[in-house]
């Protein structure tokens, strides 16, 4: 036993051979305990993300241009992840794009009562951007079996009077019905510099 015990033999603590006082022996034992962890922060987004969030309030999506490659990164971070150089130019990208990858979730997540399974999480690349980001794809008559890589989608924004400095202004993306985009071969970072598929 001890340190050298055969790992294929369950220790008593796991096999249930733990004796307890008689007074407790016939009661339903505690088998689990909830131990929530919660951390409350105040986040400040910094200069580049602040510009992005303020553009969001105007229903615009903006990105940074890499000074070496011309690649466009959304959201802007102030630095190009491919060249490592500080970015100086910010451009608007479209609020339409294509699905590069997706997943259909059929199991509810505790604490996310706003999500109603089954729902589609997708990696959406806006036209004019070399990067995608995670987004919900939905629509009144969306057939889950119809969701596919290359599907064209456009952003569905909150009503104008509810817009804030927030990426949550885009409620979800919905299919446009246009012909599918030709999805370029994936690279680890970024897509071709012509602004992605069209």
């Amino acid at each position: 036993m001890g340190y050298n015990q055969d790992p294929s033999v369950p220790p008593a603590a796991l096999s249930g051979a733990v004796s307890i006082p008689d007074a407790l022996a016939d009661l339903e034992p505690v088998r689990s305990v909830t131990t929530p962890l919660r951390m409350e922060y105040t986040a400040t987004p910094g200069a580049s993300l602040s510009k992005y969030l303020r553009a969001m309030k105007e229903k615009r999506i903006i990105g940074d241009v890499c000074p070496d490659t011309g690649m466009v990164f959304v959201p802007p971070r102030g630095v190009s992840p491919v060249s490592g150089k500080r970015t100086t130019e910010t451009v608007d990208v479209a609020d339409e794009g294509y699905i590069e990858s997706f997943n259909i979730t059929r199991i509810p997540i505790k604490g996310r009562d706003d999500l109603h399974p089954p729902y589609v999480s997708a990696w959406v690349v806006p036209d004019g951007s070399n990067t995608g980001s995670i987004a919900l794809v939905a629509g009144d008559d969306l057939d889950l079996d119809d969701v596919r890589i290359g599907m064209r989608v456009k952003a569905v924004w909150k009503p104008d009077d509810e817009l804030e400095e927030s990426a949550a202004n885009i409620l979800h993306w919905e299919p446009t019905g246009e012909p599918d985009a030709e999805v370029p071969d994936m690279m680890r970072i970024g897509r071709p510099t012509d602004g992605g598929a069209q």
């Binding site: 929530p36 962890l37 919660r38 951390m39 409350e40 922060y41 105040t42 969030l53 303020r54 927030s166």
Partner: peptide, 11 residues
């Protein structure tokens, strides 16, 4: 800009 950010793990 400032916003509340809550991370919660309901283990």
């Amino acid at each position: 800009l400032r916003a509340p950010l809550v991370l919660e793990y309901p283990f």
